[in-house]
């Protein structure tokens, strides 16, 4: 059974918790629906934290795999997507911590080169003017560079709030800290970003 070919309306109407229950009871294809539902949003979270497509792909696979293996331990007192996001964010933060030393050894030029490899990810389909396109690519590069200069914890909060549009309450559950801490981190990160992007604001 290919869930992608299945009636998508039927799967869209089923709540996450119901799909989780079905999966735990042995209907493993139910998890495929959850993957289809969250793959793009989760990709966005991880990619904006790592700025690297290969890492994002690996982490996304790992996050879904880990969620699948621990599905029986999922408690219904939290929403499924916050639980799933939490797995993905924690794994991403772990990877970034491991690479912190390596990243610190990179010069800014090397970082820029790294990020420029990801330019192909940009989906500016509306952009036709070459000059405007170049400006936007420059902006994207600067934006990625600025995000990478933030600490991992601050970047996670910015990604979840500003890019993914999650609430402070959800972010506090995902990052396992209080809402006050989330707001504080967000405020500090915004100030830092404003300084770095002063020419674009």
């Amino acid at each position: 059974m290919d869930p992608e070919k299945e009636d998508s309306r039927e799967s869209e109407l089923v709540p996450d918790e119901e799909l989780v229950r079905r999966c735990v009871e042995g209907e493993v294809a139910a998890f495929d629906h959850l993957i289809l539902r969250y793959k793009e949003r989760l990709y966005g979270v991880i990619y904006n934290m790592t700025s690297n497509h290969e890492d994002t792909n690996d982490l996304l696979m790992e996050a879904f795999d880990r969620a699948y293996r621990n599905l029986a331990g999922y408690k219904k007192d939290a929403l499924f997507y916050t639980w799933l996001y939490r797995i993905a964010v924690n794994r991403t933060l772990n990877l970034l911590e491991k690479r912190k030393k390596f990243r610190n050894n990179l010069s800014l030029n090397e970082m820029d080169l790294d990020l420029s490899k990801e330019q192909g990810l940009l989906d500016w389909s509306q952009v036709t003017d070459p000059e405007r396109s170049a400006q936007l690519k420059d902006l994207q590069s600067k934006l990625n560079d600025s995000l990478q200069r933030l600490s991992n914890e601050h970047r996670a909060v910015v990604v979840l709030f500003d890019i993914e549009g999650l609430s402070h309450a959800d972010i506090s559950k995902i990052t396992n800290c209080s809402e006050g801490t989330v707001r504080s981190r967000l405020h500090y990160a915004h100030k830092q970003l404003q300084k770095m992007l002063v020419g674009y604001l």
Partner: peptide, 26 residues
């Protein structure tokens, strides 16, 4: 303005083919 700029990053995507094959890859 900063929030608008950051929101632009939502459009960064590896493209449809990547997500179409993601389940099989998983």
């Amino acid at each position: 303005k900063l929030q608008q700029l950051l929101r632009l990053k939502r459009h960064e995507s590896p493209g449809k083919p990547y997500f179409d094959h993601f389940l099989a890859e998983f």
